[in-house]
Write a protein that binds this DNA or RNA. Structure first.
Lengths: 257, 257
DNA sequence: TATGGTCTATTGGTCAGACCTAATGTACTC
DNA sequence: GAGTACATTAGGTCTGACCAATAGACCATA
């Protein structure tokens, strides 16, 4: 057992001086950090172009390679949008839901998140989302919700149905006027779409049931009845998840390969 | 009013043919997409190194600049970890919660998400998270939760308290064994930490209340009592949010500048 | 007068090659 | 056997050149 003076056996030298591991940041990261900070702090207004690459080169004394890598980092993070050509450049952008949706998507694919986990998360979020919607919805929000649900009723094929379904659920989140919640829903939606696309449990009955459930939730939201909206959404999402998982299990059994 | 043949006034030509805007992908994006797909499909096992940059150059007939930009994209997305030096290279990595947490953080900062929205979102997620924890927790999970709560009780200063608080909340999510939920909690936590850090509403009484609330939730989780865990967590998070927002309002009034 | 062609300047995209720096393996020395 | 020196391999940065896309001005022609 190592003594107090010799906590780590691996230390080979005579000295007992210890230093924390130090990070040696890369030049491009330094530049990216600097620019990111300025963008997020609001110093650069959305839409304004950053200086051209060659201008940044002379300003920073870095090479163009480095400058470009920094810009590329910011682009991937959704903080700038880069356009080529004259009057092009790196235009400041506020990070949007898309970039978050992308990274949620990466997590889901990369970690092989189970459909169950995805649906559970939705079960957590959406009832509350409905409650907020009942509290904060405007007339426009209601119009969007009803239009989306109408598209669900009229959907000619599975893809239209799923898209309209997503629109409605995202619409509920938007009616809640909570940007973070909206962002999360927008991030989860594509993943749910993809996961649902290959399940064939959606028949006319399911579509009809979905339409009716949405309709009753729409009513509660219109009436500003938070508890009812929450309860109905909870039930709707839960039932939907159960049905979906039932089919998934069956599929696994039918096609064990 | 535009007729059916002239839906958009801005179209100047005689033809009514419409084309969608087309994307011209950059070479580095193409490479990045290719590699990303292979990583996510599991073709490259986690931890294996990609070929060295100069090797990729000869394999792809691209320049090193392009190859490096592609690798940088993947690095930002958390799909590879790049190490310098001999035996270095780009090592395949499964995307983790960190990258998602980063992009959630960017959204929060960039969109200036209000503390209220942040806390509301937590109010939606955490009760469900507690419910899952009650259902799926292991003995190790329980030990983590109790240790974290003990650290809350013993916290000598605000920073320790907040950190232990985060640990406990993330611990609940982990006890639920839902990777997505865990990731979201890990993403929201730092933001809540920062938002709370500057509010001075946390005194000994709040800390004591928090400790007791956690304790009772811990019990429900241990007992596998989902509804109770959910209810208590809902109450805890709600009260905490109310208190915090109360202080925030007062702060705004006190310091209108 | 409207449509299309041409030119040019600007700016990002790509390339080739060189050199620097970090990390590691290995042989050598004491 | 511990420590050192060196070679090797890989990423990091720099330079300078050229390609490609785009906007705007100007011109040509039906």
């Amino acid at each position: 057992m190592p003594t107090a003076e010799e906590p780590a056996k691996e230390r080979s030298g005579r000295s007992t001086i210890q230093l924390a591991p130090m990070s040696v940041p890369k030049a491009s990261d330094v530049l990216a950090d600097e620019l990111r900070e300025r963008i997020l702090s609001g110093e650069f207004v959305e839409g304004t172009p950053l200086p051209p690459e060659r201008e940044l080169v002379v300003q920073t004394n870095m090479s163009r390679t480095t400058v470009r890598e920094a810009l590329r980092i910011l682009e991937v993070q959704g903080l700038v949008r880069i356009k080529a050509g004259r009057a092009g450049g790196a235009f400041v952008q506020r990070p949007g839901e898309e970039s978050m949706a992308r990274s949620v998507g990466l997590l889901i694919r990369g970690r092989q998140i189970r459909l169950k986990a995805l649906l559970e998360t939705r079960e957590g979020l959406e009832p509350f989302s409905a409650k907020l919607a009942a509290r904060n919805r405007t007339e426009e929000d209601l119009a969007v919700l009803e239009a989306a649900n109408q598209r669900i009723k009229d959907a000619p094929d599975l893809a239209s149905f799923l898209q309209a379904n997503i629109d409605w659920h995202v619409g509920v989140a938007q009616a809640g006027h909570n940007e973070l919640m909206t962002g999360l829903m927008m991030a989860l939606s594509p993943a749910i779409y993809e996961a649902t696309e290959n399940e064939q449990f959606i028949d006319d009955e399911v579509m009809e049931t979905t339409f009716k459930a949405h309709q009753s939730i729409n009513r509660a939201i219109r009436d500003g009845d938070g508890p009812a909206a929450m309860r109905r959404m909870d039930r709707h999402v839960h039932v939907y998840a159960e049905e979906l998982l039932k089919v998934e299990v069956r599929t696994d059994i039918t096609l064990p390969d």
